[in-house]
Nucleic acid binder design. Structure first.
Lengths: 338, 338
DNA sequence: CTGTTAGCGCATTCAA
DNA sequence: TTGAATGCGCTAACAG
């Protein structure tokens, strides 16, 4: 059905090697070059990447495995990653783990079978076992957003703890003392952010009643319920730290449905901004992750590892996580208290 | 480095054919089966999909090409598509066209080279030329969201025109006569939606001054500028139809920044809902596309075409577009006028 | 610069 | 049920 270089050979009378050389950018006589190009055009020839990959055992493919593809955070990273890899001559093969470690493991095995040259993984959880098979297969891996316990795999992420610390500090500086947190004690990023918040509160000797700590998952539902409960307290907080994008979505929805106004009645600060700042009224004060820088760094790191792998014939040792700073972008969702 | 069936042959003493049969689910003696499984375990063997694909010229791979991956609409579809294909035993290979027809063409060629069994494409524009190469390569294609002019490729989408008609009708029924549109005359979906709006207005003999027609691209910027201009008019509209997700984002931002209130001063209805309803205050009345149904339908249609292709040895004829109904979900962003 | 040859890892005949 | 042989489409030596 599809044309092969053999067909080109028939048409042009040249040898397979010459044609192959043409395809791989070698030097040949202009007239031969022209002949081949003409034949390719006529036959609608397209390289069979499978055959090529079989020989070279290189796929020029990079696997990107994400915990959930229907996630704005993920998609945005995907966009930057894809652009970067494309510039470098690689194609990205994107796999969705559907928030399921089993699917994630399947994805990794699938990509190993595809002989990808490297992988970017935003893991479902903190305890996945996939790094080992990848290492054995000689495929370098770079994690994003979430580290994996003692897996010896480099991770590119933001300084969750420090920035959360600063976020709560900002609430404090605006005069808030009754500060609540809607966050996660299950996702690793959530735990890091929580740690930063709590550390600040502890350092300032601010008493945080347990009703002010809404811990669950990074989900819209948790954000919604958490905020509803907070607003219904006898002595509600004056300010709330919201731990991630989904939590913000849910929490803001709860505020919108309540008679209370932000920031008059309740001050808000959130971690992650993706399109939120377009829609929320008033504009929320948010911790913004440098998504492009994260993606570029991760891509470059992986590309470097891929080069090293092919040079040294083995996956290079991990060099430690790469931590980028997040920054706080002020809106007007925090009231100044006396 | 990685183990091959040859290694298994060495370990087990069985022939390549037997091992191959095992891998493909054939019948063999339990003891041989056990031997092979043991060897696979020890050697950490993984099938080389490139080699397998080279022989079978089947990849169990479906290419999914999207115009922009950093797009909530796209990502959500991707999620459902991926789940469906996964159930059917296919893996999805996702490519981002970065809103660039050139990149799109590269993606298609790349996927043809990868010998994907089929493709889902959400095209960048309405006039791409990729269907032809895909057809020549014997790869069935299903479009989503946007048809392509006379390409003879089936498309799964919603009834943009009819639902837009109804959306404007709803504004009318609420008593609005000064109705503006922020939409697109460049994207195909935008044109269809625009057509529906205009048809209704025409049928009702409602005069729409040209200042009320903000036509550009489906972008946040266009939504923002369009709304700002509308709000600044001498005689501003009482209601605005917003043509897609990005336009809504921009337009709502403009309203939020203005002193005007929705719906007291300006009524809003928008096409597309993705997380918007969580954040906007008041809750917007929106046209909601049945994303899961769209994805499932497209996936099933493609799967069917793939089966037909392998049966009949050629890509089946197009059967016409598949149009699903969108529905309007009421919020409280439309004021009732006397 | 070009051609000949061998082989990548696997599935699939056909014999046994 | 199993094994030996062949070829998928291409690249990479090497020789010319």
């Amino acid at each position: 059905m599809a044309a092969t270089i053999k067909d080109i050979k028939e048409v042009t009378g040249l040898s397979l090697a010459t044609i192959s050389k043409y395809l791989n950018g070698g030097n040949l006589l202009p007239e031969n070059r022209a002949k081949i190009e003409k034949a390719i055009e006529e036959l609608h020839y397209e390289v069979n990447e499978m055959a090529r990959g079989l020989v070279t055992s290189k796929s020029r493919l990079i696997g990107v495995v994400v915990f959930d593809i229907a996630n704005v955070f993920t998609c945005t990273l995907l966009k930057y990653l894809g652009a970067r890899f494309r510039e470098a001559g690689y194609a990205a093969m994107i796999c969705d783990s559907q928030n399921d470690v089993q699917v994630e493991a399947d994805n990794i095995r699938f990509l190993i079978g595809k002989k990808v040259d490297g992988m970017i993984v935003i893991p479902v959880g903190a305890s996945s076992a996939f790094p080992e098979p990848a290492r054995r297969a000689g495929i370098p891996v770079v994690l994003m957003d979430r580290s994996i316990d003692g897996a010896g795999v480099d991770c590119v992420k933001v300084n969750n703890k420090e920035t959360s610390y600063k976020a709560v500090e900002m609430l404090y500086d605006y005069g808030h003392r009754r500060i609540a947190i809607i966050g996660s004690d299950q996702e690793l990023t959530g735990m890091e952010r929580l740690e930063g918040c709590l550390q600040f509160l502890k350092e300032k000797n601010i008493d945080t009643p347990s009703e002010y700590l809404k811990l669950g998952r990074h989900s819209i539902e948790h954000g919604y319920n958490g905020m509803q409960e907070l607003l219904g307290l006898e002595e509600p907080p004056t300010a709330v730290f919201m731990g991630n994008f989904e939590i913000i979505l849910g929490a803001v929805m709860a505020v919108n449905e309540s008679p209370l106004q932000c920031p008059a009645d309740i001050s808000l600060i959130g971690f992650d901004d993706l399109i939120i700042s377009n829609l929320s009224n008033p504009r929320l004060t948010l911790v913004v992750q440098p998504l492009q820088a994260l993606a570029d760094s991760a891509a470059d790191l992986l590309l470097k590892k891929i080069d090293q792998t092919s040079d040294e014939k083995k996956v290079p040792e991990p060099q430690g996580d790469l931590i980028l700073p997040a920054r706080i972008v002020e809106g007007n969702s925090i009231a100044r208290l006396e």
